[in-house]
Amino acid sequence: MTRSLCHALAAFVFAAFVLAGFAAPSLAVRPDEMLSDPALEARAEAISRDIRCVVCQSESIEESDADIAHELRVIVREQLKAGASDDQVRAYLVARYGDFVLLKPPFKAKTALIWTGPFLLLLGAGLGIYLYYRRAKRVEAAPLSAAEQARLETFLKTHDDHPEAGRKAGDAS
């Protein structure tokens, strides 16, 4: 009795995995949502890939299984069927959910930093590195003053037993 139950359960789990393997494309679009016109459906999918699912936030509505993502996919398709252009469909959603609903926010004053930020950082870092090396080179190139040159010469004259000389003399240590 329990064994047959176990088998039934195992079979069910196996079947579920097999079905999931076959039936789970990376997209969450349900077959009944899809439009019969392939060109229109392709446009709907392209738009949906750039529309953020408003509850899952990091997924597009094309990828999300959330109920509201399903509703938004259906709304995108209804709008296209009614003859709206891609931009009109996006504007329709933006009017309700704001720019947030677009995975690629439009370039405006408010979003300028998002778009230009990485380049500004790169520019800043490049400038920093350039200044650093230019400065380092300048320090290196500074010649000795006459007084320093004189000190160096007297030092070299009075210290002829410097380590180099010691090694040459065959000192074991």
């Binding site: 408003v54 509850v55 509201i68 509703e71 938004l72 709304i75 309700r96 959910y97 704001g98």
Partner: peptide
């Protein structure tokens, strides 16, 4: 069908 909420008011849940 949830359309008043979504289309009319832009609710997320």
């Amino acid at each position: 069908n949830g359309r008043i909420g979504i289309v009319g008011f832009g609710i997320t849940g």
